[in-house]
Amino acid sequence: MGKSNSKLKPEVVEELTRKTYFTEKEVQQWYKGFIKDCPSGQLDAAGFQKIYKQFFPFGDPTKFATFVFNVFDENKDGRIEFSEFIQALSVTSRGTLDEKLRWAFKLYDLDNDGYITRNEMLDIVDAIYQMVGNTVELPEEENTPEKRVDRIFAMMDKNADGKLTLQEFQEGSKADPSIVQALSLYDGLV
């Protein structure tokens, strides 16, 4: 993909415009910024974590950033290329609610087996709590990752089998306004 070129080839721009919710001009602008920050044309896990640390200076986002990195890194080569970056950004910032929920499901399904187990969710929720640090005051019933996961599973795990399917996750998330709101945070920002 033209590693350190400051412009993408027209056919690449066209393809990314088809695969995302961005215009050709927006794709070019994002590429310019991506190459400025990642001259090699790729972003590794350490660089990704560094970006998260800028956004969450009062907590430790390392663990959460690693989980997000793994979802962005579609081809699992340990690096995020621009096409992976822009497609994930498109879903998280401008995707439909169902697209965002499928993306979030992939984030929580750490072993990619098609289910979110209690332990997988606990890993992610714990990482989120570490990331936000003491900057967020949580209600008593959610002031630990374990309590939050218990509440989520009580609401979403309809067949009580200890794991969530994509359908259970989507339906449960849509029924909880706070989850829908959290997924909409990026709307309109890009």
Rank of each mutant, 00 (worst) to 15 (best):
G2D: 01
K3M: 15
K3H: 15
K3F: 05
S4M: 03
N5S: 15
K7P: 03
L8Y: 10
L8K: 10
K9A: 05
K9Y: 14
P10E: 02
E11S: 15
V13Y: 06
E15M: 02
L16G: 15
K19V: 06
K19C: 10
Y21I: 13
Y21H: 12
Y21E: 07
T23C: 02
E24Y: 14
K25R: 11
K25P: 09
E26I: 05
Q29D: 14
W30D: 05
Y31V: 11
G33W: 02
F34N: 02
I35V: 11
D37L: 14
D37K: 02
A46D: 12
I51Y: 02
K53R: 14
F56I: 00
P57Q: 01
G59N: 03
G59A: 11
D60L: 10
P61V: 10
T62H: 14
K63R: 09
A65K: 09
A65L: 00
T66E: 02
F67R: 13
F69I: 05
F69G: 14
V71T: 13
V71P: 11
V71L: 07
F72P: 14
D73C: 07
N75D: 05
N75I: 07
K76S: 01
K76L: 07
G78F: 15
R79K: 03
I80S: 12
E84M: 05
F85L: 11
F85P: 02
F85E: 13
I86F: 14
Q87N: 05
S90T: 12
R94H: 03
R94W: 15
R94Q: 12
E99V: 13
L101V: 11
R102H: 15
A104I: 03
K106E: 07
L107A: 03
L110N: 07
N112M: 01
Y115H: 05
N119G: 02
L122A: 14
A127I: 04
A127H: 00
I128F: 11
I128G: 00
Q130L: 09
V136T: 13
E142Q: 14
N143S: 12
E146Y: 12
R148S: 02
V149F: 08
D150F: 10
R151I: 02
I152S: 03
I152Y: 13
F153L: 10
F153R: 02
F153T: 00
M155A: 12
M156L: 13
A160D: 07
D161C: 14
D161S: 14
G162H: 03
L164T: 03
L164V: 08
T165F: 14
L166D: 07
L166V: 13
F169R: 03
F169D: 11
F169P: 02
S173I: 12
S173N: 11
D176V: 09
S178P: 13
Q181F: 08
L183P: 09
S184G: 12
S184W: 09
L189R: 05
